[in-house]
C-alpha cells in the first residue's frame, strides 16, 4: 500500500476525466451531511427557547393568579394596569 496514489494536486482534482462527477458527488454528500446536523441543532435551540418562554409565561401567570387570589381574599379591588401585568411580558 502506497502512501499516496497521486503525483500532483492538479491530477487529484482532475480525477482522470471524471472530476466533475467525483467532486459533484462528494460536494453534495458533504453539504448534505453538514447541513442535516446543523438544521437539527437549530431546531433544537428554537424549541428550547420556545419552551423556556412558555414555562416562564406560565410561571408568571401562576404568580399573578395567586396575587389576585390573595387580593380577593383581602378584599382589595384589583386595579387594571398594575405593574404585575407588564412584568409578565418580560
Amino acid at each position: 500500500m502506497d502512501w499516496m496514489y497521486w503525483n500532483s494536486f492538479a491530477e487529484f482534482i482532475a480525477m482522470g476525466t471524471h472530476g466533475v462527477y467525483v467532486w459533484g458527488s462528494f460536494i453534495v454528500m458533504a453539504v448534505a451531511m453538514v447541513a442535516e446536523p446543523l438544521l437539527i441543532v437549530k431546531g433544537h435551540r428554537q424549541l428550547l427557547a420556545r419552551l423556556r418562554r412558555q414555562f416562564r409565561a406560565e410561571k408568571s401567570e401562576r404568580g399573578r393568579a395567586t396575587v389576585r387570589q390573595t387580593q380577593n381574599r383581602l378584599g382589595v379591588p384589583s386595579t387594571p394596569g398594575t405593574p404585575s401585568n407588564s412584568e409578565s411580558k418580560a
Partner: peptide, 10 residues
C-alpha cells in the same frame, strides 16, 4: 478509471 471513486460514497 477514476470515476469509480464515487462508489466510496455511493
Amino acid at each position: 478509471g477514476e470515476g469509480y471513486r464515487i462508489i466510496f460514497l455511493h
